[in-house]
Design a protein around this nucleic acid. Sequence first.
DNA 1: TTGAATTCGGACAATTTTATCCTATTAATA
DNA 2: TATTAATAGGATAAAATTGTCCGAATTCAA
Lengths: 144, 144
Amino acid sequence: MFSKACEYGIKATIYIAHQSLESNRVSLKGIAEEINSPEAFTAKILQQLVKNNIIDSVKGAMGGFQIDKDEISKIKLSQIVYAIDGNKVYTGCGLGLHTCNDKKPCPVHDNFISIRNDLKKMLETTSLLTMTKGLDVGLTYLKR
Amino acid sequence: MFSKACEYGIKATIYIAHQSLESNRVSLKGIAEEINSPEAFTAKILQQLVKNNIIDSVKGAMGGFQIDKDEISKIKLSQIVYAIDGNKVYTGCGLGLHTCNDKKPCPVHDNFISIRNDLKKMLETTSLLTMTKGLDVGLTYLKR
DNA sequence: TTGAATTCGGACAATTTTATCCTATTAATA
DNA sequence: TATTAATAGGATAAAATTGTCCGAATTCAA
């Protein structure tokens, strides 16, 4: 569904948000440990998220990553996915056709439409806050 | 959604089915031309489809690929996808966690469940015959 | 002001996916 | 039976994705 980079990005963002809610700034190292991801690769992904204004970074000693508490409920899963994987998730044709639309559909076009719409809707309505919810109480997990 | 290989596989199968309905056996070359795919790569994919008993191949001069007419309505999109991409499409965790299930869910587990179920259902109910339907009348397309 | 902790950014390496090439095998037909 | 047209399959190459390394820049604190 998503690229590995995107998966790491989502997990990292959730973890940063979770810590930010408790006013903790977190380091790359801490993030990579917590979400079980390769550190240097994760660094690249975090850079992308910073550039896309999804997370904030602070350089230097005591630096790290964080998200404004106010923003956590506003950021949607779709933004994270878009920042890393672009819009191919829900715009591309199921068969990879370049020109596939209602007027010139591929043979599976109609079958995919409602699923894509549902996926899009889900991504656009799922907030970062929602995704962090289960972490506190050990109801959801980011590792393994 | 699917790998490139899988996209080619689906398109090839649809084309073969369409021709088989008119009792035409088709060659690799013809298929690759018709679905706009690299010939040698397509050959590998067709081999996989043959091994998975989705299409039949006939070697030698006048050989090619075909599907029993009776089978065309029985073969489901899910079988083609499974033969090439395996079951990762609808079994994998949205965040790539190895251990993600109802008991130990990732933070997006619940959000993905219904979408995955819908996708699975769609793949399992969409038949090859259905997918060939629009081709005759130029209602659907396999190129571009 | 120096050292340590940290992100940033570029270059590189490994792996996976996509694609190509060439030979072997098979079958029709002249 | 020889030739030709086709699939099968192995080896290799190219491209994309994933992952690593290292030095530069920044900031804190001793």
